[in-house]
Design a protein around this nucleic acid. Sequence first.
RNA 1: GGGCGGUUAGCUCAGUUGGUUAGAGUACUUGCUCGACACGCAAGGGGUCACAGGUUCAAAUCCUGUACCGCCCACCA
Length: 912
Amino acid sequence: MEIPKIYEPKEVEAKWLKEWQDLKLFHSEPDTSKKSFSIVIPPPNVTGSLHIGHALNNLLQDIIIRFKRMNGFNACWIPGTDHGGIATQNVMEKELKKQGKKRDDFTREEFVKMMEVWAEKTGKTIISQLHKLGCSCDWDRLCFTMDEKRKKAVNYAFIKLYEKGLIYRATRFVDWCPRCETALNESEYEQEDEKGKLWYVKYPIQNEPEKFITVATTRPETMLGDTAVAVNPNDERYKKLVGKNAVLPLVNRLIPIIADESVDMKFGTGAVKITPSHDLNDDAMAKRHNLAYIDVIDKKAKITSNIVLDLKKQSIKNNEVSDLIGKDRDEARKILVELLKEKQFLEKEENYTGPKKRCYRCDTIVESFNSKQWFLKMSDMAKRAIDVAKNGETKFFPDKWLKPYLLWLENLKDWCISRQIWWGHRIPLWYCKNCVEKIEDVTSDIKGVYASQTKPNKCSVCGKSDFIQDSDVLDTWFSSALWPMSVFGWPDETNELKYYYPTNVLVTGHEILYLWVARMIMTGLEFKNEVPYSDVYIHGIVRDKKGKKMSKSLGNVIDPLTIMEKYGTDALRFALAYQGIPGRDMQISDENFVMARNFANKLWNVSRFVLMNMGTRMTQIKDADDTDKELTDKWILSELNLTIKNVTEAIENYNPSEASRLLYEFIWSKYCDWYVEFSKTRLYGNDEKTKEAVQKIHIEVLENILKLLHPIMPFITEEIFQNITEQKKNIMVSDYPKFDGTKINKTAEKEIQKVIEIITAVRNIRSVMNIKLSDTVDIVVKINSKETEKIISENKHYINSLAKIGKIDFTKSSQKQNHSASAIVGDVEIFVLLEGKIDFELERKRLEAQLIKINHELQTYETKISNKNFMEKADPEEVFRVKQKYQETQDKKKKIEDIIKNFGGGLNGKRF
RNA sequence: GGGCGGUUAGCUCAGUUGGUUAGAGUACUUGCUCGACACGCAAGGGGUCACAGGUUCAAAUCCUGUACCGCCCACCA
């Protein structure tokens, strides 16, 4: 059997993906005789393909689900995709733009049809990527947030909430994208400080043409809708002006100068222009002071004709301002600033950096204004969501997220659920054309409005059957909020819903804690009266080397497919798991993948080693008696069991990083570096019985390693597992290793530790003295303690072979050995005889350097022991330890000093 | 302005409830084709744990403050 030296992931991965799929190992059916463990995927948007963040998110879920499956649970992981609302529609619009087309070139039906085709295509891409990643989702249960069943759930939920009176229509300030022409929520725009200007505009005082009040503004174009100038009532500069009128420049409309506490005296001039229609604060102020509203900017961010109507109403002579009608807000700004300058209303302009909201999909600056939207009342639902988190029905891992979660819910405003786009769940409200005069004026209490999944037959008011459906769609998070229920067929009481719901854990990044997690909890409580999952596992965001969030525009995205191609899927998975420290964002770079790839290769090669030494005697493992086992065997089994315990705990505590580190350490530094080497003396010997015994241990350890590692690295572990066992069973459905306390052997651990230290010390001398491997040298180990002599004696062959030395002798003499380099390991004095090969000066330097270290160490112990307080107050165990350590170090120091003393005479006399 | 996190070896990061001489990977130095692996083996060098106080017998670890970096929330004319 020829096995390549380098692990080749590609074929292996394809092979097992197919087999797992063919055997339907990912599939789960409700089975009341078994305990269920369920996870629902955070459905990726069908905007394109998966990024490394998705890979992390899904990997973590896969680790948990595979772990639970191997631990006897009926594990079910529901996969799916999200229609993604505005985000996806924008991707489509961008595609159209490339072809020189736009949304308006199509009818709504045509556009939605195109979107469906797109969603289908990208959805498939995403699913295939998840599949390739090794995600053990139940692919037979694939869902989409806008498929028929989910549609039903959304409509049902909307209608229920509507009937309960929780959904209402109102005119509110909303964030609005003038390019997308829809309301946005906080996840749909990004707010950042941007460089801009602050313009100081002089507003003349009525009847006092020489006097002005100067306001500072970042948005001069909105001045057309100003209906007041406000100052702080305590502002001495303006006290006399309050109550007077200012004349709006260019427009010549009179506006009152008012006093309001909310005005910041320190900002700008301390006087602020008030545009109630286009600013949330101004709106609030307008309500307090009963000011008029004049809309200046329309849905498309163009100047409205309202400004002229307003002028006419006040019989103010028309002027150049009316030319602005229909112009874009930016253009209008330029023109206005020019006009103000020309007419000497502009006092000055200065640079100013302030916050700007931009639509996160099209980068257009968000406009905020009053708009008629559908809202969902949040206060009661939020209260319940707060309660369940406080009383622990839902727990957060790590729990530091509890506080922000609560804070968000406590300040929650009603949720604007309507969007003026075409892609999404259309609001299931129908208006009787006969009874409802103006659709814009519809509210929930008006007659002739019906909440219904399908078009109503007849209007109960007028008896006619001419209906029109609301043209808005629901916020994409509305369907997401129902996801943990809807994937199991809710609102129908399906077997799946009964068996798998509530789910066990939700795994997600913290960026959607509010938007999604909180809302799922609220709807879960509302409709099912229980939390949708008991645990919320919140992982970090993947960032690049410089700590920047990965984004296409920054060009720093890592494509998981590229990594999988280059290093293998298991390497990608291991690297992500290894770096994914709970509660922290993670930075990842190529080096991590190289490390993981090398680790996979190490595992591959150690299994090659085991296989090569199995011969044809590959047998089922039977636990031999401990008496048959050597110290090294007991040691590795002890270490293995410790690893089993710790890895299991780590995964159960949602810490795959810890699990990965433990496994790396055990496999590489314990099993490969030491046990494998120890075992060679027996494997290459002639005693068949001994050989077989050590083979059994190897099989046992390797099999356990593979199982432990399988949730993180499924492919390579399955491949090796199938090679080393004759079982037909797949590793992914085998039993996860169980901790066996009887295998823990502290004595073996201690003694092997000693052996390792002695070997390392000898190797060190070899290395420093530049002793070639080919030079077989003799070594004499002098023992002062009988206990250690026994250990060394019993493990002599290991020291011989691992330190590559000729022979070991014992001596009781405390005489220095001629021509030797020395090392002290605890109570063991080692003399490596190097006749003719020793560099005396080097040896002296080496020992003196050691002495410096020892002295330093000794000092720390001395300080402690001479400290009365330490001796009295410290934990007695700690005192004992320090005392012991002190004694040991002192002994060691004395021994080295002795050697050096002897050295003095020896150098010239060549006694050494 | 409020909150959260970070600052540990050249680089990327671990470090559980305070208690071995503070660890890993990588990079670096030296030596290795020794019957799993050069994607490797062996040996080594490298850190005042951001800074300043405090608590404690004892602090990378707990507390307070400072600086810088990052994120979230709110405000900003």
